[in-house]
Design a protein around this nucleic acid. Structure first.
Length: 426
RNA sequence: CGGGACGUAGUGUAACGGCUAACAUGCCUGUUUUGGGUACAGGUGACUCCGGGUUCGAAUCCCGGCGUCCCGACCA
């Protein structure tokens, strides 16, 4: 299967190292922790590399998103980063006056190219090759893609960069009604995604500005002080409104009262739009209906910021010791730590055997087999933030059990292997 | 793009215009230690961001670049 992740690894082989201190040019908590723990490396302002641990988290998030997109009929593709000038000129979005985040370059053979900051134009143009009849509709292509945006100011670590990973899905439907049905199913899918990511209860469907095409769009906003949006919550009704569109008309439309609203800061982790048939007309994407009449295709666009979600989660799920990953996106299922294995052959044998057993059960394990003092291993483990820790030492061997520590609560239990494994929930 | 702060070993900090740029951490050797970053000894590592200028003398002062962070603006 696409994106299957099942590798365990010995920590002695992991090339990244933890740091006691974060580089001074990082203030945001997500970047500080992710860099200290060795998940990411900063390339330049707003541009980060994803290292083995970080990539595992990214892949886990992608897989959760992918599963839900496939469930509602999505078909995964991957489009190019280089884009044609001529295409964007047709929708009047090539000019730096109209789109101020373009990275552009010249072809040696002559002419210009743009680096994709969005893919609405290219994919819609491409779809002219595959859509001709109502029989071809609806279709829902999506991709995971690095978007390149020449932001005036990058900020907040990986939460607002110049290069970031996004899932973008597009819906091509025959009319408003079928568009709306799919739009609603995406909302449901997104709720399931955020639930699985562990941020379901703090992520709100939020009414927001619709841009050039419609009055409103919907954002998915996760409550966090590190976010850059201000939204108004009606917690009871699970409704939220972005500050940018809050007015009496909107309040009335949503059936909420100003007095019941709570102002909070939030990070936009997803945004979904209805483009109507405007872009299809501009780019010439038409289909023939049952009567043979030519009609423009109805377009919708559905984004989720993959790397931004990772940053948001790092901000929310962390403490003074380091990261605390939700189970579903932890780089490994369990952090296995040996204590005193260099002194005791029995410990070494036992922990090696446990590593093999866990692997054979399909669990992914980060095995700290390094010859270090326990304190340093524990500190590293806290920083990396795998939710469950197994410790094997002479002490635990005497009892014939495994010491299991929960990263979030700090709770420690001595368990039989079978019970310890069942905690991992797999 | 407006405003502010800053740029010194891999990392974090210090150094009045004046000795060989210091300390911690990291890294390497050895001994030691082994349930919360063990201790000691020795060693390694910096054109002080770049380019000009002032000065007998510049990490330090001045000018120009480049870079980074923060506030704001922007965010289709």
């Amino acid at each position: 299967m696409k994106g299957e992740i099942s590798n365990s690894m010995r920590q002695s082989k992991l090339f990244t190292k933890t740091r006691r201190e974060a580089p001074k040019d990082e203030i945001s908590k997500n970047a500080e922790l992710l860099i200290r723990a060795g998940f990411i490396h900063k390339e330049m302002a707003g541009v980060y590399d994803f290292l083995p641990l970080g990539l595992l988290v990214i892949e886990k998030i992608k897989n959760i998103v992918r599963e839900e997109m496939d469930k509602i009929g999505g078909q995964e593709i991957q489009m190019s980063s280089l884009q044609r000038k001529e295409l964007w000129e047709r929708t009047d979005r090539w000019s730096d006056k109209n789109v101020d985040v373009w990275f552009k370059s010249k072809l040696n053979s002559g002419g210009e190219v743009g680096f994709g900051w969005s893919h609405e134009e290219p994919i819609t143009d491409m779809m002219k090759n595959y859509i001709g009849s109502y029989r071809d509709l609806p279709i829902y292509p999506y991709q995971f893609q690095s978007k390149l945006r020449n932001e005036l100011r990058a900020k907040s670590g990986i939460m607002r960069g110049r290069e970031f990973l996004m899932k973008d899905m597009y819906s091509y439907t025959t009319d408003e009604k079928s568009h709306q049905e799919f739009y609603d199913s995406v909302i449901e899918a997104y709720h399931r995604i955020f639930e699985k990511l562990g941020i379901g209860d703090i992520t709100y469907l939020t009414l927001a500005s619709g841009g050039a095409f419609t009055q409103f769009s919907h954002e998915f906003q996760t409550i966090t002080e590190s976010g850059e949006d201000v939204i108004y919550l009606e917690r009871e009704k699970k409704i939220a409104v972005n500050k940018e569109v809050l007015n009496d008309e909107v309040l009335k439309k949503e059936g909420i009262e100003r007095g019941n609203l709570e102002e909070v800061k939030a990070a936009e982790v997803g945004n979904i739009f209805d483009f109507k048939d405007i872009k299809s007309k501009e780019l010439g994407l038409y289909f023939k209906d049952e009567k043979g009449e030519e009609k423009p295709v109805h377009l919708g666009s559905y984004g989720i910021g993959i790397t931004r979600i990772m940053g948001t989660i790092a901000e929310i799920f962390s403490d003074d010791k380091g990261l605390v990953w939700p189970k579903n996106i932890s780089p490994f299922d369990v952090h296995l730590i040996s204590v005193g294995a260099e002194k005791s052959e029995a410990v070494k044998t036992a922990v090696d055997k446990l590593y093999d057993n866990l692997n054979s059960k399909g669990l992914t394990v980060l095995y700290d087999d390094r010859d270090l003092r326990p304190g340093e291993k524990f500190a590293d483990s806290d920083l990396i933030g795998i939710p469950t820790r197994f410790i094997i030492s002479e002490k635990t061997l005497e009892q014939g059990k495994i010491e299991v520590k929960d990263r979030e609560t700090g709770k420690v239990e001595m368990l039989e292997e079978e019970d310890a494994v069942s905690i991992l929930g797999k």
